[in-house]
Design a protein around this nucleic acid. Structure first.
Lengths: 199, 199
DNA sequence: TGTACATCAGTGAACGCGCGTTCACTGATGTAC
DNA sequence: TGTACATCAGTGAACGCGCGTTCACTGATGTAC
């Protein structure tokens, strides 16, 4: 009859993580507390610690799932567009949409500052590289003469610029701008970034 | 002999605020604690509360000073450049420089999320408008046909994009990029943003 | 100029709360014979 | 198949710490006469 314990353990781990994701989604990072998670998952605080050494690791696990979901949406968006410029616009818009309809998950990605000692987890770095690669691929197609260093830098610049706009939008700093107009403005940003350089 | 009490009171207020600014500068927002401030200013915790109702207001006061200092540097930078494009580049670079050599003060501006109920202070909003105006003035000169709504939006887009790059840079996300190259890339961003639109 | 009282600046121990983390304990499952 | 012991999942009260905030108190300054 071996296996019951393992099944229970896996099930608990799953439920704890699921509860944490739901909590982040519904109430944000500051609601992601051991007691709340345990309660939502239907266990006691001690059980949570049987699966995660501390709350930081649990938050990281939630953020990994968020990144995964976001990357999936971005990949899908890219696949639907036909030109490099359209793909870049789709990336930017999808990023904005993700931030808007998963605002707590999205904020969680940036609000969580590791307590100093801990490293940024490999998984996150990989996802980050994957995102930059998505961008870089299109930039390279639009501008084949870019060397790989410039391409890496340029990809980051594009991501940073779009991210800045999305952040401002999420903070309500684009006052009085309708959703439609905001997307147009995001398109504008992307268009300008890939325009042939002046010099 | 009236006036000794008032002088003491003003002096204490000054020292408390000064200590808070120094603490933010040297150790960042998370070090801005009542006991640390009181200690640095040479008073007890009770005295701090005679001048600020809670720590949030004190942080806001520190951030106001930061914004003031930043705006002064930005204004000076603008005054030294001769063309709209150069002025925009100077704004972006100065913003980056400020973030770099006052990193804790700069981070404090964005890390401090008010605890929900409190409004964003008028002073901060005004400084924000002033910054957008600095940008808008140059954009209008470069593109006189922009109506005022578009100009307002475009100013925010430019600020957001530059802010995004500066944020990424502060997080070390422009890996392996020298300071000089980073500034060049920031110039690139500004140039692209003001390039004549394609359509 | 002096006296009596009121008001103010400043003190710091103590309170309170949130919240992550620990650990001795219980009952179920697994294992050895 | 049964028994005895070991191991594991799960519990939740209690601990500990950080830190903002309060408040009764002290001594200096101001005011009224």
């Amino acid at each position: 009859m071996a296996g019951i314990q393992e099944a229970k353990r896996l099930e608990t781990g799953r439920r704890v993580l699921e509860a944490a994701v739901t909590l982040m989604q519904e109430e944000g990072l500051q609601a992601l507390q051991i007691r709340a998670i345990a309660n939502k998952a239907g266990y006691s605080v001690g059980s949570v610690y049987k699966h995660y050494p501390d709350i930081d690791k649990l938050i990281i696990a939630v953020n990994s799932i968020t990144l995964e979901g976001m990357m999936e949406r971005l990949s899908n968006a890219v696949a639907k567009a036909d030109t490099p410029l359209d793909r870049l616009k789709a990336l930017a818009r999808t990023y904005l949409h993700f931030a808007k309809d998963q605002s707590n998950l999205w904020r969680g990605l940036f609000e969580h500052h590791l307590a100093g000692n801990d490293e940024i987890p490999k998984e996150h770095k990989q996802q980050n590289v994957a995102l930059l690669t998505l961008i870089g691929k299109e930039l390279a197609e639009l501008n084949p003469s870019l060397d790989s260093d410039s391409l890496a830098t340029r990809s980051r610049t594009c991501f940073a610029a779009v991210h800045g706009m999305v952040t401002f939008s999420m903070e309500g700093r684009f006052v009085g701008l309708s959703g439609e107009m905001l997307e147009k403005e995001l398109d504008f940003l992307v268009e300008q970034l890939v325009l042939p350089s002046q010099q």
